[in-house]
Computed example of a mutant assay.
Amino acid sequence: MAKSPGLRLVESPIPEIQPNECLVHVRATGICGSDVHFWKHGQIGDAVVNNDNGLGHESAGVILKVGKDVTRFQPGDKVAIECGIPCSKATCYHCRTGQYNACPESVFFSTPPHNGTLRRYHAHPEAWLHPIPDNVSFEEGALLEPLTVALAGIDRAGLCLGDSLVICGAGPIGLVTLLAANAAGAEPIVITDLDESRLAKAKDLVPRVKAVQTSRDETAKDLGERIVQTLGQEAKLVLECTGVESSIHAGIYSTRFGGSVFVIGVGKTFQTIPFMHLSFREIDLRFQFRYHDIYPKAISLVAAGIIDMKPLVSHRFALEDGVKAFEAASNPASGAIKVQILDC
C-alpha cells in the first residue's frame, strides 16, 4: 500500500490552452471522499499517488479565455466541469458505444497521475464543459458532480415510483442520493448511518425518510432485520453509499427475494460477501464506476428546483485555506457534510 502523502498548497503558472480548450477560473470545488482517501492512504484500488498530484474534481467556474477552435463558449460563461475525459476514438469500443466512463485511455482529473481542478485556473476541453444557467450558483455547479454519481446509480438500478428503498450511508453521496430518490418517487425510504447528526440532516432534507442509526457492535444480520422493521417491508432496492463491508452486508440482509443491492460507495480492494444468502434469494449485487451522459440531466433538475442541494454545503473555505478545508472534511468532529473551497 502506498504511503500517505503530505498535503500542501503550491503556486503554479496559469496553464496555456490548446485550440479546443477553455481557460476556466474555478470558483467552487467540493472535497470528495476520494480526495481525502488519496491524501490519507495514497491510493484507491490501482490508482496510486507516486508523485505530487493535485486533487479536486467537483468544480464549477467562469470562462476567461477560449481557444481558436472553441465554438460553444465565450468569456464570461458559467460552466460545470466534467472531469472524466475519454479518448473519443472511433476505435475505442467504450467511447463508440456511449460507455465513455469505461474508456481505458480516459483522463480523470485528480486521479493519479492527472492533477485535479482544485486550483485557481484550469484548462479544460470545450466538449467536457457544461453551461449552467444564471439561477444555478457556482456552489451548486460544483455539487453537480456528486449529483451525477447519484443519478447514474438511480438510473442503472432502475428505481421506479413507489419502490421500497434503503440508502446505506448519510454522507454527501448518501444525502445527494436521498434527494434524487425522493424526486424519483421512492417510497418508503430508510437511510442508515453511524452519525446521528447526519441522520438528522437527512430528515431535514426529506422529512418523510426513516432513519436508522447503526452501531459498530451490531451484527450485519441484526442491523438488516432492524432496517426491515423500520422500513415496514424488505427493500426492493438498496443503494449502498459507503463501500464499508459490514454496511454492504446489512444492505444485503435487508433486501427482498429478487431485489437488488447497488454499490455506489468506494471501499476496500478485497471484501467478502454473504454468497449463499445472495444466491438463495436471487439478489442482484451490482456496482457503479463513475457516470456518463448525466450532466445535462443534473443541471436541468437543479435549475428547475426539483433537487435542491444548497443545504448540503456545511463548510466554506478560501483557496488559500485549502489545507484547513481538508482537515475539516476528514474530521468527523467538524460535523462537515460537504466542504467547498471557493475563489472569488
Rank of each mutant, 00 (worst) to 15 (best):
P133R: 15
G171Q: 03
D134Y: 00
L161W: 12
T117F: 00
D155Y: 04
L165G: 15
L161M: 10
A123H: 10
G116D: 02
G158F: 10
H114E: 09
L118C: 15
N135H: 14
D134F: 00
V166I: 00
D134K: 10
L159N: 04
T117A: 15
L151Y: 01
L151E: 01
L165D: 12
W128G: 00
G141N: 12
S137P: 14
D134T: 14
R120P: 12
W128L: 09
P113N: 07
A157N: 05
V166N: 02
L129K: 15
L161I: 15
C160G: 03
N135R: 13
P131R: 14
H130I: 02
I132D: 08
A170Q: 03
I132L: 01
E145R: 10
A152W: 00
D155M: 05
E140G: 05
G171F: 01
L144R: 10
V136R: 05
P113E: 07
R119E: 08
D134C: 00
R156I: 06
P113H: 09
G141K: 11
C168N: 15
H122W: 13
A157W: 09
N135K: 14
G141Y: 12
V166C: 02
L118K: 08
A170V: 05
L161V: 15
E140W: 03
E140T: 04
D134H: 09
P131N: 01
L118G: 04
E140P: 01
R119I: 15
H114V: 11
V166A: 02
G153E: 01
P131F: 06
V166D: 03
V166E: 00
L129C: 11
I167M: 01
I154V: 13
G116E: 04
V136M: 05
L165A: 14
A127L: 12
P146D: 02
G158D: 01
H124E: 08
I132Q: 11
D163M: 10
G171S: 05
N115M: 10
P131W: 04
P133G: 09
P125M: 02
E126Q: 14
A150R: 04
G153W: 06
V149R: 00
G169T: 07
F138C: 06
L118I: 11
G169S: 08
T117E: 08
G171K: 07
G141T: 10
T117L: 03
H130M: 02
P113I: 03
T148Y: 02
L143Y: 10
P133K: 14
G169W: 00
D155E: 01
N135M: 11
P112S: 07
T111V: 15
W128H: 06
C160P: 00
I154S: 05
P131G: 02
D134Q: 15
R156A: 13
Y121V: 12
A152Q: 12
G116Y: 12
S164P: 13
E126L: 02
C168W: 11
L159R: 09
H114M: 11
T117K: 03
P131E: 00
E140N: 08
Y121P: 03
W128Q: 07
A142M: 03
H122I: 12
